[in-house]
Design a protein around this nucleic acid. Structure first.
Length: 334
DNA sequence: CATATTTGACCGCT
DNA sequence: AGCGGTCAAATATG
């Protein structure tokens, strides 16, 4: 359930990955420290800070949520941990049934301080509960189109105990709706949905679909063993990476909202359409997290268009970065 | 008036 | 029995 693509079946490896990323950023920072781009240094420092924060969050989450879960399934085989089948014995019925469950921790940045940033979906609150042992109540939301379109997606939002500026958001179920009635910030999303409905699940269509394209149309050297399709659905949630990837976009739902994003310019989802010819190389891997931050809710549905240079520049990576990752980008930037 | 939120009641699971 | 999740009537909002 709480699976990540780190080859360890747990978040420990992820934290290591994050720490590696931090180290890499520190190295970059050292290089640029005496340089002529204080802004870059600032950005690097900010990235380091944010990744560190995520790592801490991850460790906290691991020791609470995962810990509780693992305690309840203590007898389960460690190897089966990553498949969503810890209930081998009691497969009859669970309260959460077969709903996909994805957890993310988001800050109020991009939101209004009382709510996490908009995730480009219309939610309607249907309940609130005081949760035992938690300082803050949990809000229950379902998709606005539950009745009109039978969309069964729900989410639970709860302010974290540790840091009131952060929320734990749990998405349950998949969106089956086409959000053509979304009136607010995502006005442009409707058209995008019509043409590329698989992207409607992404919090940041431009950034997410870019990386979706990257991960689905490119051959990437994985850090760990190849991921099974079922596991692909789960990664990116318990993971602190700012994106979730999926080679099966139609089943991905509710990506974490990146807090800061260089993708502030408009773009169309279909500009980043996945090449059908590359569907056989759709292995999803755990990227060294692209530091894409500063997501604004107002960018939901915005059309963004940029080229490779801009992307790499925005990602603050050298052009050869992808080469280092053994990524074949030839078919991507046509 | 239509739609969204609040909130106590209800229900199923452990 | 207690807890978490959902329902639905009352209320609020535009």
């Amino acid at each position: 359930m709480a699976s990540v693509v780190d080859g360890n079946g747990g978040s420990g490896g992820l934290v290591v990955t994050e720490l590696g990323h931090i180290k890499e950023l520190v190295t970059q920072l050292e290089v640029h420290l005496g340089g002529s781009s204080p802004d870059l240094c600032k950005q690097l420092a900010s990235q380091i800070s944010s990744i560190t924060e995520r790592s801490i969050s991850l460790l906290i989450t691991t020791s609470t949520l995962d810990g509780a879960r693992k305690r309840s399934a203590a007898a389960a085989s460690p190897l089966s941990d990553a498949s969503d089948a810890p209930f081998v014995k009691a497969t009859k019925k669970r309260k959460t049934k077969n709903k996909e469950r994805h957890e993310v921790r988001v800050s109020t940045a991009g939101g209004d301080g009382d709510h996490p940033a908009d995730d480009c979906h219309s939610w309607r609150k249907y309940g609130q509960k005081e949760i035992l042992g938690a300082k803050h109540p949990r809000g229950y939301y379902r998709c606005t189109h539950r009745h009109s379109q039978g969309c069964a997606a729900t989410k639970q939002v709860q302010r974290t105990d540790e840091d009131p500026t952060f929320f734990d958001v749990v998405y349950l179920g998949e969106h089956t709706c086409v959000q053509s009635q979304r009136a607010s910030a995502a006005a442009g999303q409707a058209a995008a949905d019509a043409q590329a409905p698989e992207y409607k699940y992404n919090a940041n269509p431009g950034a997410s679909s870019l990386l979706q394209s990257l991960t689905s149309s490119l051959t990437v050297k994985a850090e760990g063993p190849a991921v099974e399709p079922e596991q692909q659905l789960l990664q990116g949630w318990d993971a602190p990476a700012p994106f979730c990837f999926s080679s099966t976009p139609a089943t991905a739902s509710g990506c974490l909202v990146p807090e800061r994003s260089p993708f502030s310019a408009p773009s169309t989802s279909d500009n980043w359409g996945v090449s059908p010819a590359t569907s056989d190389s759709n292995r999803v891997v755990s990227f060294p997290p692209f530091e894409v931050t500063l997501y604004r809710s107002s960018s939901c549905g915005d059309d963004v268009q940029f080229g490779f240079e801009e992307v790499m520049s925005a990602l603050d990576r050298p052009d050869g970065f992808l080469d280092d990752l053994d990524i074949d980008i030839s078919s991507f930037f046509a």
